[in-house]
Amino acid sequence: MRNRLLLPVLLATCCIQVQAKETPADNYKAYCVQCHGGDGKGGGVNIRDIAVVPRDHTDVKSMSGRSDETLFKAIKEGGASIDKSILMPPWDATLSDEEIKDMVQYLRVLCKCNFGS
């Protein structure tokens, strides 16, 4: 009887947690598009007066030159952590590690490339 009651509670907990994780497409739309642009090519709505042009996420040459670990670090800790622009902020307080991992894979889809390819 107790198990019967416990199961729905466990299921509810599991589903609430699953719901809390956003899709990489939505996270990209929310946080990345403002600088990297709706098409990911670096032409976001903020670039008019920006000192450093944001990365073109569809550029195979530059994106394949960065490992997944480097991309993860840049998203989590900001551009300065990989000796790039401070204009790329750290998103560690916004995205979970799991969401950042998903985002790295999403970037691989955008550039249609892997590290070293």
Binding site: V45, N46, D49
Partner: peptide, 20 residues
């Protein structure tokens, strides 16, 4: 602007700065 990068998203004058 330069050290903290806040201006990327915020206007500091009516026609100068970020827009999101």
């Amino acid at each position: 602007n330069k050290f903290l990068g806040c201006m990327a998203c915020h206007l500091i004058e009516p026609e100068y700065g970020g827009l999101s």
